[in-house]
Each structure stands twice: as structure tokens, then as C-alpha cells.
């Protein structure tokens, strides 16, 4: 009898945790997509929570400090690690994405302070929604500059 109580208690806790995980996952899932995938899905993903990664095109960065509105374009980069490695690492992939005019691109709008790391050939990982006009509205913006910190060898020469 005493043992039964504990087993029932344990099962109840387990059920509660499973419920918490399942419902929270469902409510907060963000679909990780590349820009090519985003374009292929088209209207099917409008309004969904998305997480998109792309290479920042430096010339397109515009910032209006009055409204704190930041707009820029990002170019498609592969999402698969193996693919990135095969093409010579993240820095090379980002560079190739930015210089290639035929890559698919999307326009991004973000309202907030301009991030310190936003510059040409940075990798932007954005969370937000796609609107019907094809503009990505980012709620969150994460940036990485592999060119600066993962450079394999120094470029300066010396004595």
C-alpha cells in the first residue's frame, strides 16, 4: 500500500513534466530554415515563428535612429554543417554568399538598437515572422563574425 502511493505520486510528476515539455515545445517551436527553403515554402510559412540564418550584405544596411528601425538584406547560406565545411568553412561560405548576385536574398526589418556586430559578411541568425510582402520581421537578432575570430592564420607579415 505504502509503495503504491509513491508509485502513483511518481507517475503524476512524470505526467506533469511530459505535459509541460510537450505543450511548451508546441507553443514555442521555431522552424529553422535557410533562405532558399523560406522562398520555396512561400506563403505556407507566413506568420509562423521562424529562425533564419543568412549572410549580411553590408551595402544594404540602413539605420534610422529616430525610429530605431534597422533594415538590411541577407543572402542564402547552407544550413548543413557538412556543406559549410565542404565549401571551406563559415568565413568562406559567408564571403561567397555576399559576392554572388544570383543568391536568393530577403529583406529584414528589426526595431531596436543597432547591434555592434552587424557588418558586411557577418552571419545573422534571426528569429521572427515572414510577412506577406516577403519581408522578414526579426524580433531577435544574433550576429557572428567568423572572419574576425576564426581566421586561421595572420594576414600581416613582419620580420
Amino acid at each position: 500500500m505504502g509503495r503504491m502511493k509513491f508509485i502513483i505520486g511518481g507517475v503524476l510528476i512524470l505526467a506533469a513534466v511530459v505535459y509541460l515539455i510537450a505543450s511548451s515545445t508546441q507553443a514555442n517551436a521555431e522552424y529553422f530554415m535557410t533562405i532558399d527553403e523560406l522562398k520555396a515554402r512561400g506563403s505556407g510559412v507566413i506568420g509562423k515563428n521562424l529562425r533564419v540564418s543568412g549572410a549580411v550584405i553590408g551595402d544594404t544596411i540602413q539605420y534610422d535612429p529616430q525610429t530605431l528601425t534597422l533594415t538590411f538584406e541577407v543572402a542564402h547560406v547552407p544550413g548543413d554543417n557538412k556543406e559549410v565545411d565542404a565549401e571551406g568553412g563559415l568565413a568562406a561560405v559567408l564571403h561567397a554568399a555576399v559576392v554572388d548576385p544570383n543568391r536568393s536574398r530577403i529583406k529584414v526589418v528589426y526595431v531596436g538598437p543597432k547591434p555592434d556586430l552587424l557588418k558586411n559578411e557577418a552571419q545573422a541568425i534571426m528569429t521572427g515572422q515572414l510577412s506577406a510582402d516577403g519581408v522578414f520581421h526579426a524580433d531577435e537578432l544574433l550576429l557572428k563574425c567568423p572572419t574576425k575570430y576564426q581566421e586561421a592564420v595572420p594576414s600581416q607579415t613582419g620580420g
Partner: peptide, 13 residues
């Protein structure tokens, strides 16, 4: 399909 969960997931759960 890669699906990630952000801070709201952890907070809620």
C-alpha cells in the same frame, strides 16, 4: 525539419 525552442519554452516549462 530543424525546429528550435527559445527562452519562452524554458520559462514556461
Amino acid at each position: 525539419q530543424k525546429v528550435t525552442v527559445g527562452p519562452p519554452f524554458y520559462e514556461r516549462a
